[in-house]
Nucleic acid binder design. Structure first.
Lengths: 227, 227
DNA sequence: CGTAGTCTTGAGTATCCTCAACGAGGGTGG
DNA sequence: CCACCCTCGTTGAGGATACTCAAGACTACG
């Protein structure tokens, strides 16, 4: 009855939590930048855990627009859900991305006999829910600046256990755009705006220093450039 | 505020899905329209299953804006995650909403000893993930009309096993607005637009007849009123 | 019948998208 | 070694969509 189909779990906060039990049925995979993840015939057959690097889970709309559903970072679990008629896919974002793969039937059997494993799997699913809920909150923000600001804060928290001021973006502007459902140009402009306001400082296109955390959470101030 | 009336579980089932095993530790609760769900002191202590009616899971931003994270319909599991510093809450939307409540420690123990229960819980979590992912896709749509159209289609599929043309909205325009991250006025205008296009027909403010399914998926046509 | 909440419509403004162009960096091949 | 190509990132101008403010119907309910 509990079918593994129609879902796409993943996880969070694997750091420090033992995955020893899981390793019994894990397969290590390494991926190049842009390399697709998953079997084409049966996307739901596997479950994945990001070990290092980053990956994107995306859907391609009939009109050709790509939308990023989930950004997978080390510690995150995920699977490929064949939701509806949507075409789901996953790709590595950075070079040398390492993933653990679990064949779902085996993992399920292991979970049935080992509560430790079952807890870990369920925790992974719950973490995915929390991640998606936070992303929904980000997409619900009013202005593009708020979205980008929230994205940077979220990324900082997920990338480093004890958040520092520096964030290295593992993704391109295009990925950010598809993740936040805004255009690339708007992403670029928002970053420029945030910089002019003194909220962040660019130390390279992919390296951001967070100067004023409150200004990033620009729910408080509803202003724009001010040039 | 009236408290939900609790009594011991009687013969409730969720949408044809067997919850027999779960009933052992279930508490039935009935809620009035607008009545809050969950303990205020420890929001994460319980897990809920919607039996009948509808509920909304929402977050209130510092600026006072309310955002609906998840729309809970019969068959949906949910919990109140205290994500970050966000204030999460849940409320019944329609009168006579019935929920099953599970005390989490008990449910966890039950799942450890009973794989059936464990599978059911995991399935509930996966369904939540799938639901949130679909919602992310909806929020990623470009125009407000597309969002409203997708919302109507989604609602139809979730409300009736075999989708008919008629959808009875359990939510107000304000709820739709907070769910789709657009303003109430835009929701109203979009519905009017869809009606003028012949995609839907209003048979009352809360009753919609879906006439042209393809037109609702208006990713294809990017036009507006044309008045 | 009045009040409150819901739903709709209008007018004006602001944000964001599209189209376009330009600069920077990294491979590749002559 | 340099030219070339490609992707990425940024900025500008113009137009379209959605928001805000405002007001008017409709419904439910006491």
């Amino acid at each position: 009855m509990p079918r593994p189909s129609h879902h796409s779990p993943s996880g969070y906060r694997a750091q420090g939590i033992s995955t020893d039990e899981l390793r019994v049925c894990a397969i290590v995979g390494r991926y190049e930048q842009g390399q697709p993840i998953g079997e084409r015939h049966d996307p739901t057959a596997y479950w994945y855990l990001v070990v290092s690097g980053a990956a994107r889970l995306f859907a391609v709309q009939p009109d050709g627009r790509r939308q990023i559903i989930d950004l997978l970072l080390p510690g995150d679990f995920f699977g490929l859900a064949a939701s509806d008629g949507e075409a789901f896919g996953a790709e590595a974002i950075v070079a040398e991305t390492t993933l653990l793969s679990f064949r779902w039937p085996r993992l399920e059997r292991l979970a049935d006999s080992n509560p430790q494993v079952a807890h870990r799997v369920l925790e992974g699913a719950f973490d995915t829910v929390a991640r998606l809920q936070r992303q929904l909150l980000v997409l619900g923000r009013v202005t593009a600046c708020e979205k980008v600001g929230s994205f940077l804060l979220e990324l900082r928290e997920r990338l480093s256990p004890q958040p520092s001021g520096d964030v290295v973006l593992p993704v391109s502007r295009y990925d950010i755009a598809d993740y936040l459902a805004i255009s690339v140009e708007t992403v670029s402009r928002s970053i420029t705006d945030l910089q002019h306001r003194g909220a962040i400082r660019l130390e390279g296109a992919r390296q951001v220093k967070i100067v004023d955390r409150a200004a990033l959470d620009c729910r408080t101030n509803g202003f724009r450039t001010g040039s």
